[in-house]
Nucleic acid binder design. Structure first.
Length: 314
DNA sequence: TCTATTTGACCGGT
DNA sequence: ACCGGTCAAATAGA
């Protein structure tokens, strides 16, 4: 039985049970069975995702750590990075990076004006090119850090009269505009969060299917909260650095999680007892500190529908 | 206060 | 050593 079939079976079983008029004992048993099926299903998915994560790795684990840290304050962790490196860093912390494998070349265009391709780009460099009249401009996707999008483009004016601009694209966009596509914003199954007595519904454990964001910025979360009606999900989890500062603020800002069937709540207070309240969540966050979230964001960035996602797995 | 751009330093590949 | 791609502090802008 494929994973998708398991999921559908569980859904059908629930429907049958809700309509049936069997005695309470057998019904309770059947409901319990349905829940076990779903739990098993979810765990299986989690394992599969864990496997996918490793397949997605394109860089070394150390590189992942370095990349992830750069999303926060690279200058704060210079000492860690430099340790074991043959090269010392400069005073201001610049240049202490390892070059990632180049994004694959996609295509190139010559146009009389600069192309407006509709994507959000952020300029990160400009370089004088040998034997070229005009400098080359470097752009990366605005969502590089919060969605892991690796798209890059170079733009260079090739001639003045008539004007001609050459645009080269590297990599493809894996990002989503959260405002335009809130309904298809996410899909990552992650390790289930632990039930919390005073905040989560009693039936929390009925659905241990948890979706989570990876590397989602505070700003992105605000957008999702404003869109809360149809946004499939938005929660917690896979962000954070070694001191947990980011995952705490993340959780604090994300006071709700919603899906078609369920709604979960997370505490909004900044008590330091978060770890005690959310053992599983904390465990997941700890794990993410060692380089997993970068790959998770790739899955996230794919932004598939849940069923589509399952079909790809099965 | 927060995000985007500018710009010279720095890096890796050749 | 050179070249071009990237980083990140300083700066500009909203």
């Amino acid at each position: 039985m494929s994973l998708l079939e398991v999921r559908n079976s569980r859904s059908q079983l629930r429907q049958i049970l809700s309509k049936s008029s069997g005695n309470d004992l057998s019904k309770t048993y059947a409901v319990d069975l349905a829940d076990k099926i779903e739990k098993s299903f979810t765990n299986t998915i989690s394992v599969l995702i864990a496997g996918s994560i490793h397949e997605l790795d394109e860089v070394s684990p150390m590189q992942q750590i370095t990349d992830k840290k750069s999303k926060f304050q690279k200058s704060d962790i210079v000492d860690v990075e430099v340790q074991g490196s043959k090269r010392a860093t400069t005073e201001d912390g610049r240049g202490c990076y390892k070059r990632r494998r180049d994004s694959p070349f996609s295509w190139e265009r010559d146009t009389p004006t600069v192309i407006d391709d509709g994507h959000a780009w952020r300029k990160y460099g400009q370089k004088v090119i040998l034997n070229a009249k005009h400098p080359r401009h470097y752009y990366r996707c605005t969502y590089k850090f919060d969605q892991g999008c690796k798209a890059i483009k170079h733009v260079q004016k090739m001639q003045d009269d008539p004007p001609l601009y050459r645009t080269a694209y590297y990599g493809h966009h894996t990002c989503r505009d959260l405002l335009k596509h809130p309904e298809e914003t996410l899909i990552i199954l992650d390790s289930p969060l632990a039930p919390v007595d005073n905040q989560c519904p009693n039936n929390y454990s009925d659905s241990s299917t948890i979706f989570s964001f990876a590397n989602t910025t505070n700003n992105s979360m605000k957008l999702l909260q404003e869109q809360k009606t149809e946004t499939k999900l938005g929660i917690a989890g896979i962000v954070g650095d070694h001191d947990h500062h980011h995952h705490k603020s993340f959780i604090n800002q994300t006071s709700f999680v919603s899906s078609a069937d369920h709604e979960y709540f997370l505490p909004t207070d900044d008590s330091s007892s978060n770890s005690a309240s959310y053992p599983s969540a904390s465990a997941a966050l700890d794990e993410s500190s060692f380089g997993y979230d970068d790959s998770l964001s790739n899955l996230f960035a794919g932004s598939m529908d849940f069923d589509e996602f399952l079909q790809q797995l099965s």
